[in-house]
């Protein structure tokens, strides 16, 4: 691993084929992200991870590192744009954090804190999205879906089941499940699926588990989301 690039003034080493995101995380540098997950092929859709490479903006989760490139990430300008994207995701869906089981473990919420979000800023869309409670073990609350497609990739690429997919277009894009009835109960989805454990927000929830860990003691209550990259670096 002899090649390097510069990220916010820091020298970062990378191996051939690694993306900026992978190399940065390995070096303990946090770049905000929502649709990226180290176990899956990057999607490049949420755009939270956007950085400036040699003056041009690009998603760091899909962009391969190139020796000598100069990358800006933690700048007021880029963070302001990331904040606006986060606010967009909040107004696009229905996110009532105080009543959400995922509160404190939610990456969207934690990212909002990280970026200093004080209000949703934009007018709420208040979309009408039905909840799917048909499955015996799992609840789907689509109100919170940010269309990151992690469940789609997990079910397709790891579970080999294709339980989830995106349908619709534009602002009407939405998640569907693999059943004629459109109900999760009529799919072969189980709690053991990888897809049951990748949702960064509170859509795919285990039933009959409420407040097992009290608010205040959850993942991002204890440490900010930016600490996740450091943890990765220390593990190595």
């Amino acid at each position: 691993m002899s090649q390097t690039f510069i990220l916010d003034g820091k020298t970062i080493s990378f191996a051939d084929g690694q993306t900026i995101m992978q190399a940065a995380t390995q070096a303990g540098v946090f770049i905000p992200h929502l649709c990226y997950h180290p176990d899956f092929k990057p999607h490049g859709s949420c755009k939270l991870c956007t950085v400036k490479v040699n003056g041009r903006q690009t998603a760091s989760c899909t962009m391969r590192a190139i020796a000598g490139m100069v990358v800006e990430s933690d700048t007021p300008e880029i963070n302001a744009e990331r904040l606006a994207l986060t606010q967009m995701l909040f107004v696009e869906g229905n996110h009532f954090c105080p009543s959400c089981e995922q509160s404190g473990n939610c990456q969207l919420q934690a990212t909002a804190y990280h970026l200093g979000m004080m209000s949703p800023h934009f007018d709420h869309f208040f979309p009408n999205r039905a909840v799917d409670a048909s499955h015996p073990d799992v609840l789907l609350d689509f109100n919170r879906c940010i269309l990151c497609s992690l469940c789609v990739r997990a079910s397709r690429d790891v579970d080999g089941k294709n339980v989830f997919a995106l349908s619709g277009r534009g602002i009407k894009t939405h998640l569907i499940v693999n059943a004629k009835s459109g109900q999760l109960a009529d799919t072969n989805f189980t709690l053991d699926d990888k897809a049951a454990h990748v949702c960064p927000v509170g859509v795919i929830l285990k039933k009959r588990r409420g407040f097992a860990v009290p608010i205040g003691e959850r993942t991002y209550d204890k440490q900010p989301i930016s600490a996740t990259a450091k943890a990765v670096a220390e593990e190595r």
């Binding site: 755009k47 939270l48 967009m88 869309f125 619709g168 534009g170 894009t173």
Partner: peptide, 21 residues
């Protein structure tokens, strides 16, 4: 543009709707 945004990325999916509004 709002009608034709493919909805893949956050800025355009939500941004074109905000602009339309």
């Amino acid at each position: 543009f709002q009608h034709e945004s493919c909805g893949f990325c956050t800025p355009c999916r939500v941004g074109t709707s905000l602009l339309k509004n």
